[in-house]
């Protein structure tokens, strides 16, 4: 077993800074961000910050199933879309005769739960299998859901979409997204250190081995996907509220999935702090370099993805950091040894 070769290193006590340094930095950063609106900032700056928070949240969720568990999810936007549409339907229409129109706060948990239910029912079928079924099934679910949303015209408005009541409150949006991001990233930090997170890593590195050690792999994968889907659904619901308009094309956007994948890859696949770092880098690149070349945006992202996988699969954190402390590195070193 490969795991045993490093067992001596792993049992050594990590230094205090290594163990808690990331979290302390993260809390300091959150504190600063909570005070940020009190400095003189414009609405646009708050809005961009909210977008970055959203990217961090989405990418962290994707990273939980894609990076830590090793099950690449090419349709994660479907949970975002389902959340957005649940918000849209519950707020603007009364789908059931007895149910009145709901407010934002009432619709929010329902949107998250519906995304979670979808994830559980899909994962129950596709996650029992090893291999690539999950990836393709998610890609299919993404495309199929977009079709179905178009067909269900009375409920979803079809291609014409739905208009939500416009409530412009940049400050409230900023704090809401900051809170969601804080919850998501902190939970992932906690998951990464818990038995549950270690089991996920074990599944990624050697699924059969993990099963033999008594880990219920299907259940673990399912729970990871469910958590990721729930928070993605919440984010989608929020996005629908913020954007005040949804239709199948703006909600089920393929580039959103690409950005989640790219952010995680760029920062460091399977790491806790990779997605936040990757989101900041990606957002800066997009705004500085590509804002003039809007047409080439996705082409450049696609090519960048190929180059990242081939030449820098460990991401920025892996390149910078202590290689042994990042779990993904071991996997990558194994790839390189085989070549």
């Amino acid at each position: 077993m490969k795991l045993h070769k490093n067992s001596k290193k792993q049992t050594e006590k990590k230094s205090f800074l290594k163990k808690w340094g990331g979290l302390i930095l993260w809390i300091l950063l959150l504190g600063f961000l909570a005070l940020y609106p009190y400095t003189k900032v414009s609405g646009i700056q708050l809005f961009s910050a909210t977008q970055v928070f959203m990217l961090v949240t989405l990418a962290s969720n994707w990273n939980l199933i894609g990076g830590m568990t090793g099950y690449i999810d090419f349709g994660h936007t479907v949970f975002f879309g389902v959340g957005a549409y649940m918000m849209g339907i519950l707020v603007t229409q009364a789908p059931l005769a007895f149910a009145p129109r709901l407010s934002f706060w009432q619709a929010l948990p329902i949107a998250g739960l519906v995304a979670l239910l979808l994830a559980v029912s899909l994962g129950w079928v596709t996650l029992r299998l090893k291999g690539s079924y999950f990836s393709i099934a998610m890609l299919g679910t993404f495309a199929a859901t977009r079709e179905i949303v178009r067909i269900l015209r009375p409920l979803t408005g079809g291609g014409a979409g739905l208009d939500l009541p416009p409530v412009l409150n940049r400050l409230g949006e900023y704090y809401f997204m900051l809170a969601v991001m804080a919850i998501v990233v902190s939970s992932i930090w906690w998951i990464r250190r818990s038995d549950f997170g270690l089991s996920l890593l074990a599944i990624r590195e050697d699924e059969i081995g993990a099963e033999m050690r008594g880990i219920n792999t299907t259940l673990h994968k399912l729970v990871a996907l469910a958590i990721a889907a729930f928070f993605t659904g919440i984010t989608g619901a929020f996005w629908a509220w913020q954007n005040t308009y949804i239709d199948p094309d703006v909600v089920f956007l393929e580039s959103r999935t690409v950005e989640m994948v790219m952010t995680s890859m760029l920062g460091g696949l399977g790491t806790v702090w990779g997605p936040p770092l990757g989101a900041v880098v990606l957002y800066s690149i997009q705004n500085i370099v590509w804002s003039n070349l809007l047409n080439y945006h996705l082409l450049a992202l696609g090519i960048l993805l190929i180059f990242l996988v081939l030449f820098m699969p460990e991401g920025i954190l892996g390149k910078l950091g202590d290689r042994s402390s990042i779990s993904a590195i071991r996997l990558i070193q194994r790839w390189q040894k085989r070549r």
Binding site: S135, L301, G302, L305
Partner: peptide
């Protein structure tokens, strides 16, 4: 999967 996905988008 990641590389062919990138190829598809490109």
């Amino acid at each position: 999967l990641l590389v062919t996905f990138g190829l598809s988008i490109s």
